[in-house]
Design a binder for these strands. Structure first.
Ligand SMILES: [Zn+2]
Length: 309
DNA sequence: CGCCTTTGACCCGCGC
DNA sequence: GCGCGGGTCAAAGGCG
């Protein structure tokens, strides 16, 4: 049953924080999800307009996160763009086989991707075709290739991308029980845009906070959150500019980005482009429970402007 | 010393 | 059947 993630492994090593990591700016990101497990490939297209929150209503603090997210999705962060929008760069879609072509743009608060409970994607066996888990792609404007998302990743490969001068890097979650993988590539057209594709869901929480220093770089913490633990509050999705209730200041930093719209369609709808300047946006969420364990990075993350009653 | 990146080779699926 | 391209493995080296 536990294909690969029998249980969460809170014991994570240290956090590789890099001071320079803060360089990353997450101003706009696009979220796309596509799951090609079979030919039918059922894509998960989530529409915020529906305003259908995940479900968890908001009863518990943890779930509230999801709820909050959902709320925000329909309320503020509307990153929903047509597939066309998500692929502003033709070269991207065309160059990457399934990349954007197959992916569908979803809005921030997805009802939960899809049950990735199937076997691990390890299809090493010849007879077995490698099963692909649902994937979520994010377009982030960042100067650094590797965005920190709260999880530790080990690079296991790099390949040149056709029609793109930038290579694609393959990362795998360092947790042995976790099979989550992610691909990071830069848009050939807009070198400032980094496309991160997550595959699978983490069966554990994020690594604790970087106790090493108060400086946390969550450039993409929300990204990592997208791949939530298998069952915990599945709805703990984050948004582009979410903030961690624990360290609002930190969260702010991640959200603080110079808003450069990746796509003119959805400019930064978030009011806090410079969180540093507007602390109000960074304030901690009301419904979030004070994360104290350092593992709740994701659980605590909340969109800055989201918390709007 | 442990962990991570690098890098070439290999495997596999798909289209022609 | 062949070639192409994407994805992965694993040895070697580097770094803290
Ligand atoms: Zn993981």
């Amino acid at each position: 049953m536990d294909s690969g993630c029998p249980k969460p492994d809170p014991t994570e090593p240290t956090w590789p924080l890099h001071p320079h990591h803060t360089n990353v700016l997450l101003s706009d990101f696009t979220w796309t999800t596509y799951d090609d497990d079979d030919s039918s490939s059922s894509l998960h297209h989530y529409q915020p307009s529906d305003n259908t929150p995940l479900t968890p209503s908001s009863s518990s603090s943890s779930t509230s996160t999801a709820a909050a997210a959902a709320t925000c999705s329909s309320s503020q962060l509307r990153v929903s763009l047509p597939s066309d929008v998500i692929t502003p760069h033709p070269s991207l879609s065309s160059s990457s086989s399934e990349d954007l072509t197959d992916k569908h743009l979803i809005n921030p608060p997805p009802p939960i991707p899809s049950p990735v409970s199937d076997s691990s994607e390890k299809g090493k066996k010849k007879g077995q075709k490698r099963i692909r888990q649902p994937r979520f792609a994010f377009m982030t404007k960042s100067e650094v290739d590797h965005l920190e998302d709260g999880y530790r990743w080990r690079k296991y490969g790099q390949k040149a991308v056709k029609n793109s001068p930038f290579p694609r890097s393959y990362y795998r979650c360092t947790n042995s029980k976790c099979t989550v993988k992610k691909r990071v590539e830069r848009s050939s057209e807009d070198p400032t845009i980094v496309i991160t594709t997550y595959e699978g869901q983490h069966c554990h929480h994020t690594i604790g906070f970087p106790r090493s220093s108060g400086l946390i770089s969550h450039e993409g913490s929300f990204l990592g959150h997208f791949a939530p633990p298998m069952s915990p509050t599945q709805s703990s999705f984050l948004y582009p500019r979410m903030q961690f209730s624990q360290q609002s200041s930190v969260s702010c930093s991640i959200a603080q980005a110079s808003v450069s719209t990746v796509q003119n369609h959805h400019h930064q709808e978030v009011p806090n482009d410079d969180t540093k300047d507007s602390p109000s946006v960074c304030q901690s969420p009301p419904q979030m429970s004070p994360l104290t364990s350092g593992e709740g990075l994701l659980g605590d993350i909340v969109p800055p402007g989201m918390r709007n009653p």
